[in-house]
Amino acid sequence: MKRFALAAALVVLATVPLWVGSTYYVNIASQILFYAVFALAVNVLAGYAGLVSLGHAGLFGIAAYAAAKIMTSGHGHLAVAAGALAVTLAAAAVFAVLALRGTGLGFVMITVALGQIVWGVAYRWISLTNGDNGITISGRPSPFGLSLASPRGFYWATLAVFLLAVASMAVFVASPFGASVRGTRDQPRRMNALGYHVWMIRFLAFVLSGFWTGVAGLLYLYYNQFVSPQAVTLTASAEALLMVISGGTATLLGPITGAALVVVMKNVASAYIERWNFVLGAIFVAIVVFMPEGLVPGVARLVRRSPLR
């Protein structure tokens, strides 16, 4: 049954460009996929490690900016991808060392501050980042002969990366290291007493999260072929967190559902109402007050309780 559902989901996902019709929807599907990668990355920390980061848009932006800089200086796409990910990993390591000086609220505050530094650099260091005007790149790559220039090509490439991310998350969650990460979330003191290196486990979780954040940032840049300080704001970090929390933390399906929800809301809502920020804020408040465990576990709980089952 589970295998069947998985196969069906794969078929549906792979054929999206063939049945949704307009390229507008193919593009929205692509957005959902790379934001889902971002949300899965944030979930490694917020969900499994119990460390809430409000600075992840900073890492996301670092990946996008690094890629844009490498590309505009005339390098090929392989160098762009490798360089951007290397820079993001290094930044994630620095973020982790600093943010792990605090736990709980301290961690949150430090990540806010780190995110704002990145924003400040993106906005003010004009000779590096072109300030508010952002950086425009030209052209998407064509890995293995698949041109990403068309919405369809881009969708399939993003889908491949997305599936890789999901698979890696599934493996991570079931692994001994995944269990260690969750252990440090639930009972750090006991974990230390059991012989685990709590700090190192959190550090590695942060770097893993940083890696997939970087991948998502790279996809974002290729999708928009443009990056500006807008991608690095506190709102952007909050959106990523909202995806995770609305869907359900520490689940695989939760962040994906949340990403779909936020992207659709953002695109649909913006067509009817211009007050996206108000809606975003209201959703935040409503979810926290009424469904603190998130949509996927929340609905699962309702289904379990329903007498029909």
């Binding site: 909050a238 967190l241 108000f278 804020g281 408040v285 926290v288």
Partner: peptide, 27 residues
């Protein structure tokens, strides 16, 4: 009305106050 219900739930407080700040900004 809100923060009182979330006493001790730090993450919830972060999210709610952040959400409120977006709403205030938009209003």
């Amino acid at each position: 009305l809100i923060l009182r219900r979330l006493a001790g739930a730090e993450l919830a407080q972060v999210l709610v106050t952040l959400g409120l700040s977006f709403m205030i900004a938009d209003v």
